[in-house]
Every structure is written in C-alpha cells, then in structure tokens.
C-alpha cells in the first residue's frame, strides 16, 4: 500500500487504468433539499479514501449513492467503469430494474454504523448467508470461507454466537466479515465506529487497517482523524453537500487550506 501512495502520480497499467469509483457532477436532492451538489471525485484501485465532515454534510448520502442505496438525482457515478444503478444512454441515463442493481451490489461491500447484523442468525450464519443466497455457493464452501473470514477478523471462537451476545466491536467485525464474504472489489464504511464504546473502536479500526494493507479499495466515512492520518491515501473534506478540500490526509490535517476545513478540524482534533 505504501508504494501505491508514493506512486500515486504514476500511470496505472492495464485494466487498472479505470478508476474504481468515478463520480462526475453527482447531485442528489431529497425534495427541495439538495444534499449533494456537483460532486466529482475519483478513487483509484487499492486506494483508501476517508470522507470527513460535519454531520449533514452529505458524506453518508454520497457513500450510499455508490451502491445505489440512494439514487442520484443527476450526474454519473460509476464503479469499475460501470454506471451504478443506471444504464448509459448517451446524454440520458436510464434507471435499472432492481434485480440488475442487486447484481451490481454483489461486488460492493458495505459496513454500517449500526452493524445491521441479522439477529436471527449466528455470526457464522450472517457471513454465510449472502454467498449462499446470492451467489449460490454450496453450504460447505460458504461455511469454510465464513470460518476463514471470522478468523481473519479475530472472531474464530465466536462463530456460533448470536449478534445479541457479541459486543459492539465484535458485531462490527462480523459485519465486516459478512461484507468480505461476497469478495467485493470495493468496501464502503459508513461511520463504522461511531456507534461503539470508545474502548471498542480500536479493534474495529485494526481490522480495517489490515484490510487496507491487503490492498482493498476502501471509502470510509469517519470521524476518526487518527485512522485517516495513518491509513488513508486521500482525505476528502465535505460540507454542505460539496467537496471543500481534497488531499493527502497528513497535509490536510496538519495544514488545511480552506477556512471551513480549519474551523472543523479545530473542533475535532
């Protein structure tokens, strides 16, 4: 990962030329309330991008647009060169049938603030569910893979526990394993540590750091500036539905260029 950061300017080769996520003038309104205004950004393969900003700045909405949990109002948003939730028709884009949109989501993992584990299934069941139901993987295969993933997030011994019997940090780690079970090419994290007790934040961030080190492309909405500084390749500061500042996290955090960024960081750092 570290050499990727240094070679950011270097032209990628082959299929890697397509950015993993490409947003072109993405706007989104809820009624008359415009929550995203003309957002354009690019996430390269293997890049870790942290989205920070005050609540209501549109960062979570943007994240949810990437896997079409929210529809964009205008603009183009593509993952791995494919428009998300829409079919390209020149100057117009046509909404997809939900079944086709569901197919696209298989390749995009998402981790939620409130974990959203399935409470009626064990940790193992949670991780096995999507591969079996969506990809049609055999039970034995899904089980083996789920055990492997739970071990990877440090919860090998918790496989048979129901979510209600796991701590918040453990639940979130199961949620990460569940998303990884679909072998996504992109992982979205929507404030993954915001609902956790402070002492449990570390264990989840550790898992995410390892994931980043393994080369996963990640977009992380977070308030953890330490994590952003340490792990992210790019930091994007959003406010009021627009991208205010983008750059190397160490530079942005140490020396913000915009007044709005300065004001925000002075409160959270």
């Amino acid at each position: 990962m570290s050499d990727q950061m240094t070679s950011a300017e270097q032209a990628p080769t082959g299929a890697d030329a397509t950015p993993m996520v490409l947003a072109e003038s993405v706007s989104k309104s809820f009624g008359s309330n415009e929550v995203l205004k003309d957002i354009s950004l690019e996430v390269r393969r293997g890049e870790v991008l942290c989205l920070v900003g005050p609540s209501g700045s549109g960062k979570s909405t943007f994240l949810r647009c990437i896997n079409h949990l929210e529809r964009v109002s205008s603009g183009r948003l593509s993952v791995d060169g494919q428009l998300v939730g829409y079919r390209d028709g020149g100057d117009k884009i046509y909404e997809m049938h939900p079944k086709d949109a569901a197919k696209q989501r298989r390749d995009i993992g998402m981790v939620f603030q409130r974990f959203n584990l399935f409470p009626h299934m064990t940790a193992l069941g949670n991780v096995m569910e999507a591969p079996m139901q969506v990809k049609g993987v055999s039970k034995a295969q899904a089980k083996a893979r789920a055990h492997e993933l739970l071990a990877r997030v440090g919860l090998a011994e918790r496989a048979d526990y129901y979510p209600a019997h796991l701590s918040g940090g453990q639940q979130q780690r199961v949620a990460i394993a569940r998303a990884l079970a679909m072998d996504p090419k992109l992982m979205l994290f929507d404030e993954p540590t915001s609902a956790l007790d402070p002492e449990l934040v570390g264990e989840v961030l550790d898992v995410m750091k390892n994931l980043a080190a393994s080369g996963m492309t990640m977009i992380v909405v977070t308030h953890e500036m330490g994590f952003a500084r340490e792990v992210a390749d790019t930091l994007v500061f959003m406010d009021g539905g627009v991208v205010v500042e983008t750059g190397d996290p160490r530079e942005v955090l140490a020396n913000p260029q915009r007044e709005r960024t300065k004001a925000f960081l002075s409160k959270v750092l």
């Binding site: 569901a102 998402m110 939620f112 999507a130 998303a179």
Partner: peptide, 8 residues
C-alpha cells in the same frame, strides 16, 4: 439495507 447492500 444490509440485505440489499449484500446484493440480495
């Protein structure tokens, strides 16, 4: 949402 995000 969680189920939808998993592609179900």
């Amino acid at each position: 949402e969680a189920a939808t995000a998993l592609g179900m």
